[in-house]
């Protein structure tokens, strides 16, 4: 059943065509003059000179958190690779040199081309070993293999780039964080 939608009839001025063209030209000229004399009003971002604002909770490239002695916090429990809906995490477990920790990852690879940046790995991790708060969104490489980032790449972050980010979210004995924890463990 066709329902006829009444269309507005064209007025005589509209039918004459030329006055409408002139109106259109006025609009465009307005935009042009605005852009020419007040270019700061244009909604343009001069990227990359002007940096993009990325929200604090944005899920970007992953990083693996470190223990005070530099080893990864990860115990290769494979919760993240099991939780991952895209199957992009490959982990190979091995014995840790520290026998109190027992298990550590020998190989930890994320294929960033397959990753859907859902954050389920960060949620699944029981030891807060993987986070997605680096705000690194510009991932570029020149071959598909180079997009598979490994253990070294994921741990190549500087603590000083995350000043307000608690790098020690696990409590040390007596409920201590960061500097106190390191002191307790005898690591500076």
């Amino acid at each position: 059943m066709a329902r006829t939608v009444p269309r507005p009839e064209m007025t005589l001025a509209e039918k004459a065509y030329v006055p409408e063209i002139v109106k259109g030209l006025k609009v465009t000229m307005g935009h042009f003059l605005r852009g020419l004399f007040t270019p700061e009003t244009l909604p343009v971002q001069s990227y990359p000179e002007t940096p993009s604002v990325i929200p604090r909770n944005y899920r970007a490239k992953h990083r693996l958190m470190k223990r005070p002695d530099g080893e990864p916090r990860c115990v290769a429990c494979m919760m993240c690779s099991t939780a991952c809906p895209a199957n992009c995490i490959t982990i190979q477990a091995g014995e840790s040199a520290d026998d109190r920790i027992e298990k550590k990852p020998v190989k930890f690879e994320i294929d960033l081309l397959v990753c859907v940046f859902c954050g389920l790995c960060a949620e699944a991790c029981p030891v807060d070993a993987i986070r997605m708060d680096t705000r690194i969104v510009a991932l570029a490489a020149d071959s598909r293999e180079k997009f598979k980032v490994g253990l070294k790449d994921l741990m190549s972050w500087e603590p000083k780039d995350y000043p307000d980010n608690d790098t020690q979210s696990q409590k040390a004995p007596g409920g201590l964080l960061n500097a106190e924890a390191k002191k307790q463990w005898g690591i500076s």
Partner: peptide, 10 residues
């Protein structure tokens, strides 16, 4: 340049 300024870009 004219085209782009008319289109609100640089």
């Amino acid at each position: 340049k004219g085209a782009s300024l008319m289109q609100d870009r640089y």
